[in-house]
């Protein structure tokens, strides 16, 4: 936080749309802002779900193939299981008064962290600009990302 140096900066890439995969990116970005570090988040591939208005409230947790999951993979693969796991996790988060993903996005915007969507991923997933949350700052390409990330520490999640 010393004023003598250039301000510290982080660039976070969020490439996955699971509930458990989105939170690390969101929390890291917010923590950076709370610590006085400039932060921006680049949402690409399934990470786009986190900033898609219709999907941000329905992020799921995939327990299948997750060795840390308390559920055997055979059972975790049954229909409805990821919805169930997501509900469990969401309930626990509510219990702890953790903000929802949508709320986290709002907090990030308030905190001055910038959110970017990946242009290529949007084309591939057929996501339109108006489907994204209003907090999204811009739609950028990978090259734009590097330009923005100049002098930043890059975190891939």
């Amino acid at each position: 936080m010393s004023e003598d140096h250039a301000p510290r900066k982080v660039a976070i890439i969020c490439s996955k749309g699971g509930l458990d995969e989105a939170y690390p990116a969101l929390i890291l970005a917010n923590a950076a802002r709370m610590s006085g570090i400039d932060a921006f988040v680049f949402f690409t591939f399934y990470g786009l779900d986190v900033i898609t208005a219709a999907k941000v409230d329905h992020l799921h947790v995939n327990m299948a193939g997750n060795p840390s999951s308390p559920m055997p993979t055979m059972i975790a693969g049954l229909p409805g299981m990821e919805r169930f796991a997501a509900k469990m996790m969401r309930d626990r988060m509510t219990e702890l008064d953790l903000p929802t993903a949508r709320e986290m996005i709002e907090i990030l915007e308030g905190a001055g962290a910038q959110l970017y969507a990946c242009e290529l991923a949007m084309t591939m997933m057929k996501v339109k600009r108006e489907e994204l949350l209003p907090q999204v700052h811009d739609v950028i390409t990978a090259m734009d990302f590097y330009e923005l990330a100049e002098g930043a520490q890059i975190i891939f999640t």
Partner: peptide, 27 residues
């Protein structure tokens, strides 16, 4: 209180908290 709680408790938006206390507002 952390930043979010400060905003909730004082009734100000988070953006305002960051304006009032730029750089690590909670701290």
């Amino acid at each position: 209180p952390n930043v979010r709680r400060l905003a909730q408790g004082s009734g100000l938006p988070i953006k305002e908290i960051y304006t009032l206390f730029p750089k690590a507002p909670g701290v």
